[in-house]
């Protein structure tokens, strides 16, 4: 069962194909990351999935419906560009966002105050948004996203603009929601967040999906890396090392051969290499991303946004 299914989504703006035939499957209850550099088409894809805009081509179903807005009471959405009514009180803001998603206003306000207490912001419930710090305002918006206990939470670049402390709090909140069985989709251009949180990811570059599946599957696309330190610099054991080996003094770095660990160890021991240390490292998501999306796209991912530069 999928919370979201998309087939062949296409969106053009003034002739530019921002999204070019995207297919996505988001299983119910998963934490699903949409990775890609800025301008890859992540936000446009999310907006189409939620029914904010219609695709030019393709179909999508959200919680089983091909009319996403009809499911809006079950969905929480934190847009990339945060926005709140500046003169509204924090508790009223959360209540308003809950009421938009079908909650009775009184119940939404009460729940909003509870959430603010839990987030340590109870003292600011009656303050106007303009009186809050940027981080507090972002937290208020996030609480407004979950006040109605949605089954699906969509977060567009949720970590953007948050300091390390608030990023950690947000990660905890995402995990807590996932533990309740909520499906969570978030987009990011920071691979580390996806690596820590996601079971599944989609890698989007230039409007196309390069990969959609388990994080472990993405990582399995690369062979593990072996880091070996020997006592001897040469010997018959050298024949067991692959062609791509890098040599630095007594250190040898290479990709684990297809034959696996056992034949390698047998050859090293039998060839009297004198193993001082040996580590086999599974590739990270970043390496997998580079392998899947290419060096150029990875470089774009690493480039800071204007907000981060500020």
């Amino acid at each position: 069962m999928h919370a979201i299914e998309a087939r062949g989504l296409v969106k053009q703006f003034d002739g530019f194909r921002a999204v070019d035939g995207i297919d996505l499957n988001v299983p119910v209850g998963s934490i699903y990351g949409i990775l890609g550099p800025n301008g890859a088409g992540k936000t446009t894809t999310i907006r189409m999935l939620l029914g904010i805009i219609d695709p030019d081509e393709g179909t999508r179903t959200l919680l089983g419906s091909d009319r996403p807005l009809s499911q809006s009471k079950l969905v929480g959405y934190l847009p990339e560009e945060r926005g709140l009514y500046q003169s509204m009180r924090a508790a009223d803001t959360i209540a308003f966002m809950g009421a938009l998603r079908g909650m009775p206003l009184k119940a939404a306000e009460q729940r909003g105050r509870e959430l603010m207490e839990e987030a340590g912001l109870g003292y600011a419930a009656d303050r106007q948004i303009r009186q809050l710090s940027k981080g507090m305002a972002q937290t208020v918006q996030l609480l407004g996203t979950i006040v109605h206990d949605p089954k699906l939470i969509v977060l567009d670049e949720p970590f953007s603009g948050l300091d390390a402390l608030n990023q950690a709090k947000l990660e905890r909140m995402i995990r807590a929601q996932a533990d309740r069985g909520v499906t969570i989709i978030f987009s990011t251009h920071v691979i580390a967040h996806a690596e820590r949180l996601c079971e599944r990811i989609a890698i989007i570059a230039k409007g196309k999906v390069s990969f959609d599946g388990l994080v472990s599957t993405a990582r399995d696309r690369l062979r593990p890396q072996v880091h070996l330190e020997t006592e001897t610099a040469d010997g018959p054991w050298r024949k067991a090392l692959p062609d791509d080996v890098r040599h630095e003094g007594n250190w040898w770095h290479f990709t684990l051969p297809d034959s696996g660990v056992e034949p390698l160890l047998t050859a090293l021991i039998g060839g009297k290499a004198g193993i001082r240390s040996l580590s086999i490292e599974r590739p990270g998501l970043h390496d997998a991303f580079v392998a899947i999306a290419g060096e150029d796209t990875a470089a774009e991912m690493d480039a800071p946004t204007a907000e981060e530069l500020i």
Binding site: Y77, E81, G83, R101
Partner: peptide
């Protein structure tokens, strides 16, 4: 204008027709 300037329109558009 306020909704567009404050980007609130995105929240509204995602929640209601």
């Amino acid at each position: 204008v306020e909704e567009k300037a404050n980007k609130i329109i995105e929240i509204l558009a995602a929640a209601v027709p």
